[in-house]
Structure formats: C-alpha cells, structure tokens
C-alpha cells in the first residue's frame, strides 16, 4: 500500500534524481519497496549505477537485487539486450537458481516466445509445485496472449490453493471487470474487503462495480461503501464524493413516485457536495462552475 507520506517521499526523490541531485539508489530502493511501476526510470538510473564500477561495488550484496530490478525494468521497456546482459551476469553468479531461471523465462515472454516460456514455467512447477510466483507468471502469460478466459481459469485454480493472496484476488477482480462479468468481480472485491478492511481503495472499487451493476439494492449498498471510503480516506477521495452524489441521484430516480422511506436522510449527499465544492475551490477554482452545473443536474446541490 502506498500511503500519502510515502507518495510524497517518492515524488520528492524522483524530482531530485531527475534533476541530477543524486540519491538514485535511495529512489530505486523506494520504488522496489512500494512496488510501483517506473520501468523507464529504473532502467536509466539503475543502469547508470551498474555501469559505474565504484558505485556498484559500494552496494555490496544489494548489487544482485539491483541487477534483477534492472533486468525486469528492461524487459518492460523492451530493451532486450540489456535484460539479457543482466540475466547473464546473474546466471554466472547464481547458477542453478530458480529466481534467475524465472527471469530467463520472463525474457522468453518479452520476446513473445510463448510456447518456450510456457514449457519453462511448466518445468519449474514440476520441480516445485508450490512456487507462487511461477503460478502467477503463468496467469500473466495467458493474459499477455489475450486468453483472458484461460488466465481466469488458472487464477481460480491458483486461488483454490492460495486463498490468502490478496494481490491475486485483485488481479482476478480486474480481469472480471475487463470482461464485464461484474457479479464475479463483486465476489472478488468482497473477498478483498474481508482480508484488508482498512484499505479505502477496495471499498471504492467494490462500490464502483456495484454502481455499474445497478438496481436499487446494489445502488444502496454502493452508496454505503462510497461512504465508508470517505470515512477511511478522511474525505480526501474525490471519486468517492462523486460516487455518493451519483448514487443518490440514481436512487432518487428509481424510487420516484413511490413513497420514499429515506432512512439515511438527505444530509449525506449535501455534505458530499459541499466537500466537493470546497475541494474544487482549493485545487481547481476555474472548474468550479462546471462542478456546480453537474451537481445541479444531479439535484444534490448543497
């Protein structure tokens, strides 16, 4: 999870490194720790450390971690030659290592030699059937070939064994959403909220999917989860604030004519609208008129 303070630190280091202020190694370590995808920058700065033999030797044992990080970034940037060289160095240092073997299979993936990569992963699994990362790579392999259905099948099989892996649940949810199978995605997000109830972004994604599904009951649940997102994020999540407004107006449209038994009262949406206006006033004052016309059309203006 990337918290606000960590994000600020990452941005600060990034501008510092971009402007040649040093601290490249700290930046790369933070990128690794936060698991953000900055392949291009990792490739540039990592390679400049690796090519400087003095800097490289000062890292000590961390040197090999950096080789791995740069190799993956190079694969992501399609710099196949660099990746190949890095993997060769690692291979020389750690022959027989599974972790390096995985990198080689990823190199096959990047070259789009699907059958060879599949064969390599299958042989890894024969050796060690509990290797979670290889299982996940197999899912990614199916995904990169465009076989989303196969990827979902693999992932479901994987999750039967490793039920506590929330990253895998998230991937499954995103795959389902990409296929517009919202009912299944809802289940995955419920699983995620159960395992990590304090992450507002899961609540938000769950509410989004429920809102997309539509229907009075789903809309009411979605509104509740938007509200819990607001609660957990301290009211700083614009998407959740808009979500509350949209849900309110959709519910009002569905229940028009019927005798309304509004249990929540009208305060929630007017508070959300006020918070939105305040936020826009601070960060984008010239778009305030746009916002108020949207809120007026949703009939939730404060």
């Amino acid at each position: 999870m990337v918290s606000k303070a960590e994000e600020a630190e990452l941005n600060r280091l990034e501008t510092q490194v971009d402007n040649g202020g040093g601290g490249a190694w700290e930046y790369l370590s933070l990128v690794r720790k936060l698991k953000v995808r900055r392949s291009h920058k990792v490739l540039n700065y990592g390679l400049s450390i690796l090519n400087d033999s003095r800097k490289r030797s000062s890292l000590g044992q961390e040197e090999w971690t950096l080789y791995e990080q740069v190799a993956i970034a190079a694969l992501d940037c399609q710099a196949i030659d660099v990746a190949k060289d890095c993997i060769k160095v690692l291979q020389k240092k750690f022959p027989q290592s599974n972790r390096v073997g995985r990198l080689e299979a990823m190199l096959l993936e990047a070259k789009e030699l699907w059958a060879e990569a599949e064969k390599a992963y299958a042989s890894f699994l024969e050796e060690n059937p509990c290797d979670q990362i290889v299982h996940k790579r197999r899912v990614a392999l199916a995904k990169s070939q465009g076989n989303i259905a196969v990827a979902i099948e693999w992932l479901n099989k994987y999750l039967e064994t490793f039920m506590a892996d929330h990253d895998a649940w998230r991937e499954l949810a995103e795959l389902y959403v990409s296929l517009q199978m919202y009912k299944q995605a809802v289940f995955c997000y419920e699983e995620l909220i159960l395992s990590q109830p304090t992450v507002p972004l899961y609540h938000l994604a769950y509410a989004d999917v429920l809102y997309t599904l539509g229907g009075l009951e789903n809309l009411q649940t979605a509104k509740k989860y938007y509200a819990s997102t607001i609660d957990l994020s301290g009211g700083k999540n614009t998407r959740a604030l808009f979500g509350v407004c949209l849900c309110t107006s959709a519910i009002a449209q569905l229940t028009r004519g019927r005798n309304r038994e509004d249990k929540e009262g009208p305060e929630l949406q007017s508070l959300a609208a006020t918070a939105l206006e305040k936020d826009y006033m601070q960060r984008a004052p010239h778009k305030l008129s746009l916002l108020s016309s949207v809120l007026k059309s949703l009939k939730v203006s404060p």
């Binding site: 999870m1 990337v2 918290s3 606000k4 994000e7 936060l34 698991k35 953000v36 995808r37 993956i72 694969l75 992501d76 399609q78 990823m106 993936e109 990047a110 990362i133 996940k136 790579r137 899912v139 990614a140 995904k143 990169s144 990253d167 895998a168 998230r170 991937e171 992450v199 507002p200 972004l201 994020s233 301290g234 700083k236």
Partner: peptide, 14 residues
C-alpha cells in the same frame, strides 16, 4: 492515508 495500490508486478505483462 492510502492513496494508491501497488502495481501488481507479479502479473506484469510485457
């Protein structure tokens, strides 16, 4: 406050 989720690097596609 959590502002973003980590990129799901295990499922990275090239």
């Amino acid at each position: 406050r959590i502002v973003s989720l980590p990129a799901n690097l295990d499922f990275m596609v090239f």
